[in-house]
């Protein structure tokens, strides 16, 4: 049995080339060396970090130094921990207040009985004119002559008042509707969750520390939306540069062309866009000048 094994081993040895064992040994050693080198401190290791996730929400308020990140994240996690400490304090303070409030109420009824006294006085003169109608009977005749114009005037005024009231009501209804829509939008946006839970609030290119969007991004987006220009008007790729100056209230104070494109249709479309953008829908953090370059690169890139 042993002799047969020896014979097989000898056969194997004869099949290998000379020096095979050494080569095998070197190969094993090299393989062992690889993990050693990998874990050795000579080679720097790449740390795989979570990729940053950015979402730009231009509905957010405009801030001076927007931070990077997504808009719906809640970076103010520590603040709620502080708030509960403060809250219990005001609570006991509120309790005694209602105790105080009932006190001033009793004195109020006192003046109430006083008030009815003058009221009958005012009521008294009313019955006086009622017997008078017998004396004023001849008066109705002149009334219609005068009241025609007066009635018309009154009717007109009433109409105007009603119209104003209706307008006010519709305005209020519109405001309520907008407020409801805003609340819905806020609730909807709060439902959006980023794949990375701890991503901060802000802009893709934000470097500051305030939650919101930059004025530049907002102004860029707003003016772009006001700009209408057809690709069938385009000849070549015109480019124009304008200078705009907005005050902190978002009102355009002045604008001028730094460089015109030479294409009158293009330049006129820019003037229209700027005139439409003379009032921004949001305030700016401060009065700001902008230099805007208009061209059609993106539009012409599309087939």
């Amino acid at each position: 049995m042993e002799s047969s094994r020896k014979q097989r081993w000898l056969q194997l040895q004869s099949a290998f080339e000379p020096g095979f064992k050494q080569m095998l040994l070197v190969s094993i050693l090299l393989h062992l060396l690889l993990p050693v080198l990998y874990y050795a401190p000579f080679f720097p290791k790449r740390v795989f970090e979570k990729p940053p996730v950015y979402r730009v929400n231009l509905v957010n308020k405009i801030v001076k130094n927007p931070q990077a990140g997504r808009p719906e994240a809640a970076p103010v996690k520590k603040k709620p921990a502080v708030k509960p400490k403060v809250k219990p304090k005001p609570k006991p303070k509120v309790k005694p207040k209602p105790a105080v409030k009932p006190k001033p109420i009793p004195p109020k009824p006192k003046p109430v009985p006083v008030k009815p006294k003058p009221k009958p006085k005012t009521v008294k003169p009313e019955p006086v004119p009622t017997p008078a109608p017998t004396k004023k009977k001849p008066q109705p005749a002149p009334k219609p002559a005068v009241s025609k114009a007066q009635e018309d005037n009154l009717a007109l005024r009433l109409k105007k008042m009603r119209a104003a009231q209706e307008k006010k009501a519709s305005e209020q209804a519109r405001k309520d509707r907008i407020a409801a829509l805003k609340a819905d939008a806020l609730a909807e946006s709060s439902k959006v969750r980023s794949p990375i839970a701890d991503a901060p609030v802000g802009m893709a290119d934000g470097t500051g520390n305030e939650a919101g969007v930059s004025a530049f991004a907002f102004v860029r987006e707003f003016i772009q939306q006001q700009w209408s220009f057809s690709k069938y008007q385009a000849a070549g790729n015109p480019e124009a540069e304008m200078q705009l100056f907005y005050n902190a209230a978002g009102t355009l104070l002045h604008y001028k062309f730094v460089k015109k494109s030479g294409n009158s249709a293009f330049d006129e479309s820019l003037t229209r866009a700027i005139v439409k953008s003379k009032q921004l829908p949001q305030e700016l953090p401060e009065a700001m000048p902008f230099e805007i370059v208009f061209n059609l690169k993106d539009m012409l890139a599309k087939p």
Partner: peptide
Amino acid sequence: SAVAARIEISAPGEQTIP
């Protein structure tokens, strides 16, 4: 304080004239 920010707008928001 009044250094103008440079913005590039490379396509109109509306591509037809109302």
